[in-house]
């Protein structure tokens, strides 16, 4: 088991696997995402109270889900960086941190646009909104710290510690709506109960969530491949690869 784990840590091996996975991830991800969004934005029934403005959920919920998942994945990668000193784990963190930041911003922005007509305010300092803003700052912190330290190994460790300290924010985001009084409503999707939504609304939502996750998988592979080529540009296998591409 450990040999497979260490094999997985080899950038060259990952480069090949990622290249084979990427077309599938991109095709499936984009397909599901477009299907979910078109269905949700154009064909799903409107809500009895909010009318059409609720449709922002088809962008807001997938990006908020993924923003938190990306952080959790980065936290797992941070543990691998600190314990096993695996280069690939740090590569992953560097590659996806900006993606996570964009997703968090998208969740906050779409939430504000929806909040104005629904709640009557763009922003309120309730526990859910504030903890999500902290997540955005954690992403910014990871990006800035990663690029501020020029030594690759030192920078990887510093970023990993920052991410691990910040991971405590994730359960706070998730349970903020249950632990405290907030303006943000509790979750519509629960793992244990059926969703508080009819199927003609939650099926397109589920499609866009799945699509966004798969598309993220493609983007992560793509960004990691680029970073691998940059960092390993002096190794023999990258030189041979470039030569084989016909230069």
């Amino acid at each position: 088991m450990w040999t497979l784990f260490h094999k997985f840590g080899s950038p060259k091996w990952f480069f090949g696997i990622a290249g084979r996975l990427m077309p599938w991830l991109l095709a499936l991800g984009l397909g599901l995402l477009v299907a979910g969004l078109v269905w949700g934005l154009a064909f799903a029934p409107k809500d009895y109270l909010q009318g059409n403005s609720y449709r922002i959920i088809f962008i807001h919920v997938p990006s908020a889900f993924l923003a938190q998942s990306v952080y959790l994945m980065m936290a797992v990668a941070a543990v691998v960086t600190l314990v096993w000193r695996m280069k690939l784990a740090d590569l992953f963190v560097q590659a996806v941190a900006p993606v996570g930041a964009v997703l968090t911003f998208l969740a906050l922005f779409t939430g504000a646009v929806w909040g104005k007509p629904t709640w009557g305010t763009w922003w309120i300092w309730d526990a859910r909104l504030t903890s999500m803003l902290i997540l955005l700052f954690l992403y910014f912190g990871a990006i800035v710290l990663g690029s501020a330290i020029s030594d690759e190994k030192a920078s990887a460790r510093a970023v990993a510690v920052l991410i691990l300290v910040g991971v405590v924010n994730i359960p706070i985001i998730k349970y903020s709506v249950e632990w405290w009084n907030t303006l943000h409503q509790p979750a519509t999707f629960k793992l244990t109960e059926k969703p508080s939504m009819p199927p003609e609304m939650w099926v397109p939502l589920l499609l866009s969530v799945l699509g966004l996750y798969l598309w993220f998988g493609w983007l992560a592979c793509y960004r990691m491949q680029t970073e691998i080529l940059r960092r390993e540009r002096r190794t023999r296998w990258v030189r041979e690869l470039v030569r084989a591409e016909g230069h």
Partner: peptide, 15 residues
């Protein structure tokens, strides 16, 4: 100031 608090339930108007 009065803000509306939306709940987690969504349904079509006909329902």
């Amino acid at each position: 100031q009065v803000l509306a608090k939306h709940d987690e339930n969504y349904m079509p108007p006909e329902v």
